[in-house]
Structure formats: structure tokens, C-alpha cells
Amino acid sequence: MTAPLIEIRDVTKSYDTDRPALAELTLEVREGEAVAVLGRSGSGKSTLLNLIAGLDRPTQGTVTVAGERVDRLTEAGAARYRRERIGMVFQFFNLLDDLTVLDNVLLPAQLAGLAARTARSRAAELLEQLGVARHQRAFPGRLSGGERQRVAVARALMNRPPLLLADEPTGALDSASAADVRRLLTELNAAGQTVLLVTHDTALARSCASRIVELADGKVLRDAAVAA
């Protein structure tokens, strides 16, 4: 069997509090899985996401993603890792309002040094695939919440990352737009994209993921497949 895409071993993360945010947590995610990390505020799910993204380091334990020890990376190495290995989708989109939709999607490729022609071809492909090609010259403020999240997903996938991280991706959306994004994440995973979704929404987790990992007090309370 191949190594997991994400391998977290005995990770503890402590801040200046009595209780650690994560406590000796071990977790694996295989390539092609869609895993939802579920938990209330303070359960440790955001800390876990930050460790996987290389935005923070564990106090102890190891974090390995796509064969790379993320917990050992320098600041420059972590930035390169995020460009090449992961795509990130956030609750509030994090699009740049003074750039067009197309330029927002192109940004990761520009940072990675991808040739302009290749980057534009990839961006056009993604915008078409995600149903927002007609908005490529518009600015994000002119789009609906669901459309902005589709643009954010296109940006996250620009450099073909093996892992897509989604942090409360429907938290700022109305019910119709949220359903749209849920379908999109399901379709991406069905096409082979590995997805790790962090949420407090049980309905979102059950609709998008094949496996739910529930956290409480920085520990894995439950890790189970979603019933078909």
C-alpha cells in the first residue's frame, strides 16, 4: 500500500494555555479521499488545518504531506510548499478585490513562475469547468457569494495541487450557494482530487466527505466512514 498523502504522527500543539490545542493526535488521509474534520469551536480543527498548511508548527510530533516533512520547513520552504502542494479555499474567499477574476486565478501560477501562455490556458480551463468563465473580466465584488467561492476554488487548483484544503467553505454563503459549493466539492473529489474539509457543519460534512473525523479537546473523538 502506498504512503498516505497526509500523515500526522503524535502531534501536540500547545499555546500559552493550560490545555493544548492538539494532544498527541495521529491522523492519515489517503490520496483521493474526501475527509471532513468536524468539531465545535476550540476543538482543534483550525489548528490542525494550519499545521497541514505549514502556517504553524507542532510543539511535538511530525506532519508529512506528499512525502514532505512540513514541520521541518523554513519560512521560504513553507511558502514554496503551499504554492506547489496544496490549494486553499477559505470561508470569506480571500480574493483580491482590485484584480479581475482572471487575474485572481492566475496569481498562484505567477508566483510559481509558470509560463504566461500555459498559465492562461490553465486558468481558462478552470473557469470554464467551474462555470464562471463569463465573469473572467469582472471584479470579485460584482459576483455572488457562490460565484466568488467558485473563483476561489479555481485559484486553489491553478497549480494542480495534490491536496485541496477547505476551511468552512460554505460558512459565508446563503443556502442555495452553499448547496452549489457542496456539489462542486463532491464533483472535484469524484474526479480524483483529494479534499480535506474543516467545518462545524455536520450536514456539509456528510454531503461532501466519504469519511468524518470528529475532534474534541484536541483529540480524535471519532473517525468513521460516511454511510452511503
Rank of each mutant, 00 (worst) to 15 (best):
F90V: 01
G54T: 07
A36D: 04
E75M: 04
T47H: 03
T100Q: 10
D98C: 10
R40L: 14
E31D: 11
L38N: 06
T100W: 03
E75W: 03
L38D: 09
Q91K: 02
I52A: 03
R82E: 07
S43E: 04
G42D: 05
A21K: 05
A36G: 01
L49P: 04
A34P: 00
L27T: 05
E31Q: 09
P58N: 05
L99T: 01
A66N: 13
L99C: 04
I86K: 03
L51V: 09
S46W: 06
R19A: 14
V101P: 08
F92C: 01
D97H: 13
A76V: 13
G61L: 08
V65L: 06
Q91H: 06
L99M: 10
L55Q: 05
K45W: 10
L48E: 02
V70S: 01
G67Y: 02
V29S: 04
L48F: 02
L99W: 02
V101Q: 09
R72H: 15
A53E: 11
V65I: 08
V70I: 09
S43V: 05
D18C: 11
R83Q: 13
V29W: 04
V63Y: 01
M88F: 15
D56I: 07
A23I: 07
T100N: 12
A76R: 12
D56F: 08
V65R: 00
G87L: 11
E75R: 02
D18N: 13
F93R: 02
G77D: 10
R85F: 11
K45E: 11
N94V: 12
T47Y: 04
Y81L: 09
T59P: 06
V29Y: 05
F90H: 00
Q91L: 12
S43A: 11
L27R: 03
T62V: 14
T47V: 03
E68Q: 13
N50I: 10
E84K: 00
E31H: 04
L27Y: 00
G77V: 00
G67M: 01
A79M: 07
V35A: 14
E68T: 13
V101E: 14
K45Q: 08
L38T: 11
Q91V: 12
V37H: 05
V63W: 02
L48N: 02
G61C: 09
F92D: 09
D56W: 10
A66D: 13
D18H: 12
F92I: 02
Y81V: 07
I86F: 10
Q60A: 14
R85Y: 06
V35R: 15
M88V: 15
L22Y: 06
R40G: 12
P58Q: 06
G39N: 01
N94F: 13
A79D: 12
V89L: 08
R19F: 14
R83I: 06
R40A: 15
E31G: 06
V63A: 03
